[in-house]
Write a protein that binds this DNA or RNA. Structure first.
Lengths: 248, 248
DNA sequence: GCACTAAAATGATCTGGCTCAATTAAGGGA
DNA sequence: TCCCTTAATTGAGCCAGATCATTTTAGTGC
């Protein structure tokens, strides 16, 4: 069968890639809240963004820093983490190209309430928060679209609260794997591969457990041929079984 | 000391109260996302709302129902609850006059994701979701205000996730009592009285524990003279101690 | 003041998942 | 191909908090 083992994940490195104006425009038009805008408006908006690259594991911004920018993922994956002083992390969200992040609320102090870290090499567009806000006033359709996305995030955040208070760790892990497969899943030889580096600790921080418990459960799933997994990668062999387990 | 024991909570019953157009207008202007509007606009908007009363414990709408209305609390308190089939409830939010509730996201099916129940007798204003959405398009300032509120709720929802995954039940209860005191606290003879009916089960559902555990912890707090509590009511004697306990 | 009801308190037991502590092995580098 | 680092696995003991079962009590209605 196989020869040398290598990670089945694709290479996220940016190499000499530079974010050209054209590429930025294309990416911006993919951002859900700009899709409805005509090209003219979009070009104008594009001017206000600037691009930046970060290597995997680099911190894009840190929790409690002054929040001045709103950002959009163009390439790669970004994770949002909240730290606690006792060393525990909570992984709030895993973002993919097209997702925005940063801080809104003008009400209250403009402080990032979480740390954003590059999960892979990433390319990020950013705009000054003040500019973005006047953008919202100029284009109501954008404001409504952003509101919809935020409302959806609130929904899934509340869903997560329900899970944390009512489901066992096993069900929560099954659930998050299904969610991740919808967002990052990519069919390949191993099954439905989650196209991002994902450690046991990441998984544990997502569902609020210890990495040891996450590991035990993943081993269990693998023994039952539900998943296939290696260092920092997970592929799902039997999504239906997983969904069944997640079902409350 | 005191003679006959009665609940120190105020009487929330509406009696013969009817929501006059004037009262509605006054209440609407208190809603955070309408405060910036001039009176003319507000009067126009007021037309689109209709008022309804519910008795304590009545369900205003039920989880999984088709979501068509957006509502605003005018009088009383409303709780948002998610049910699980195994009988566990999760209390997502406790609303007071001026707070909106219902469902936004046009994306995805318009289904209420939680049940809204009257915690006291309540008076509620409601507007058709479709009308509210065109309102958002007509008045960008409203859209931005609603976005800000929603973003804040997302924040506190994420905060709650962190608490659930990193704090002990005792700290979580201390924390929620502090939060509730900020929102519903009212100084009186007993101390800082939370001006709403609040059972051990409500408290338990808010922090994701069992009512027995909540009860034990509340007894403990009372023994330490941190709170004073009876049936469905809680008054805080020593908010600082409570805040210290909540501190991680 | 008395009786009644549902909330709250309390006791006893049990367990899912955490913690601490090694051990094993995946997969990148040269 | 071997080496090395760090992720992942696995074992054992322990405890916060759930659950089940009663008893107590607050507060309302009469």
């Amino acid at each position: 069968m196989a020869g040398r083992k290598t990670t089945p994940l694709k290479d996220f490195s940016l190499g000499t890639h530079r974010c050209s104006v054209d590429l930025r425009l294309e990416k911006l038009s993919m951002v859900p809240f700009f899709t409805d805008l005509d090209e003219g408006k979009l070009t104008a908006i594009n001017q206000q963004f600037s691009a930046a690259h970060h290597h995997a594991d680099e911190t894009i911004y840190h929790q409690d820093e002054r929040a001045t920018m709103l950002r959009v993922v163009v390439h790669g994956a970004v994770k949002l983490v909240r730290h606690t002083m006792d060393g525990k992390d909570v992984l709030l969200d895993m973002l993919q190209p097209g997702d925005y992040f940063g801080n809104f609320s003008t009400t209250g102090k403009a402080i990032y309430s979480e740390t954003a870290r590059a999960q892979t090499d990433v390319c990020i567009l950013s705009i000054r928060m003040s500019n973005f806000r006047s953008l919202l006033n100029d284009y109501p359709e954008v404001a409504v679209a952003v509101l919809d996305i935020t409302a959806d995030r609130l929904q899934s955040s509340r869903e997560k609260i329900r899970h944390l208070t009512t489901l066992t760790v096993k069900k929560r892990i099954a659930h998050i794997l299904v969610m991740l497969s919808e967002k990052f899943g990519e069919q390949n030889a191993y099954g439905l591969l989650l196209q991002l580096p994902l450690s046991r600790k990441d998984l544990a921080d997502m569902v609020g457990t210890s990495s040891e418990t996450a590991s035990r459960i993943m081993s269990d799933f693998q023994d039952q041929d539900i998943i296939k997994t290696g260092r920092q990668w997970v592929a799902i062999s039997d999504i239906n079984r997983l969904a069944d387990i997640a079902k409350e």
